[in-house]
Computed example of a mutant assay.
Amino acid sequence: MENVLRPLVVVGSAVVLTLLIGWATDLLLRKADERHSETPLWGLLRRARIPYQLMLCAALLRGSYDQAQLLEAHRVGIGRTLTLVLIGSAAWLMTRIAAAIVETSYTRYARVHHDAARVRRVRTQASLIMRVVAAVVGVVAAAAMLLTFPAMRAAGASLLASAGILGIVAGVAAQSTLSNLFAGLQIAFGDMVRIGDTVVVDGEWGTVEEITLTFLTVRTWDERRITMPVSYFTSKPFENWSRGTPQMTGIVFWHLDHTAPIELMREKLRDLLRECPAWDGRDYGLAVTDSTPNTLQVRALVTAKDADDVWKVRVTVREQMISWLCAEHPYALPRVNTADAVLPPGHLPSPDGAGARRLPEQPRTGRG
């Protein structure tokens, strides 16, 4: 009877004690969250209650398993399993705590600073720091789990002896991976590109959606995702429209007839921009930038606060200016000229169509 009750008491006590401690800890965190609503730290720490309770239960069972005297034949295997669960849950808990601290720091910074560029920079750095912490904790936890096996401890000495050679071989084999890793750290702390920046890479315009230690994802205007290695942004030139101030100047081109009313178009451009909410009011202009035998190239400059608004201003000005020209000045639209050529003064067309002939000179008369 004792052989049955003792294991039940030990296991039941560990489970009940784990639930009580977990409930008390969660209650304290909930009260702290209600009292300090200005910070999300306590609410984020509550997300770690599952790995916290799992670690507590594994620790209690591992410490009291010798007293339970349950399954003596599998005592070593069960003890090692509890140790592995303890190490894994501890690593899980550390990752959740680190994520809560990093997220809280980012939230406080975003509340204090209203500069969108700085906030995106800190967001990128916080994301990459969290990934580095998770990777380090995972590697340490995996190494600790492997060291619980005696065979792995015995092989440790021989592995350390060949660590130098293995390191060189691994470095050569993972050269691209390591370059991407260091490039990711350079992007995070060098402020080259941030999450939310508007960039142009390989002729594709989009917004940086995700940055990891090895790759970067750009979401294009048509909802496509372009995944590129982060080493691309440290080795090749690219356009970052959000670098510095997000204000931008847009260009609109028209090809019109030589009779186009340029001055009236300047006035119409001013009226169109005043009615466009995306225009920031900084500057505008309209000028003839080129001419061909058939058309004029007219360019309009417009400004906006960011890339999205400058796109809206450009399409609005282009559409409404064309509509206005069609309705009020249709002669200004480009067309194929099929009229007869205007001859120089003093020339008449030849009757047979072969060419022009010069008029005979009239005798001069004077007073005599």
Rank of each mutant, 00 (worst) to 15 (best):
H255S: 08
D309M: 09
P40T: 04
I50P: 02
V4P: 05
E204N: 07
A339R: 13
L17Q: 10
V342I: 14
W23G: 10
R62H: 14
G79P: 03
L264R: 11
D306F: 08
R266I: 11
T83C: 03
R120C: 00
W324M: 08
Y109A: 02
A99M: 11
L286F: 10
V112I: 14
I165A: 09
S242E: 07
D283P: 08
T81Q: 12
V133N: 01
A98R: 05
P330Q: 11
T303V: 13
G167K: 02
P363I: 04
L41F: 15
A339K: 11
L128F: 12
A332C: 01
D257P: 02
R299E: 12
V317P: 03
L29E: 12
P349G: 00
A151W: 15
S323L: 15
I129S: 01
R121F: 01
A304M: 08
P351V: 07
A58H: 12
A100R: 03
G355W: 15
V133M: 09
L45R: 13
M130N: 09
E263H: 10
W92N: 06
A126C: 05
D308R: 06
M145G: 04
S64N: 04
N180K: 04
R118C: 02
L60W: 11
M321L: 14
T245A: 09
E319M: 09
R224W: 13
V208F: 00
L29Y: 10
R266H: 14
S162A: 09
P277D: 10
G203R: 08
R118W: 09
S231M: 01
A141H: 07
V201M: 03
P330V: 12
A68Q: 07
A117K: 13
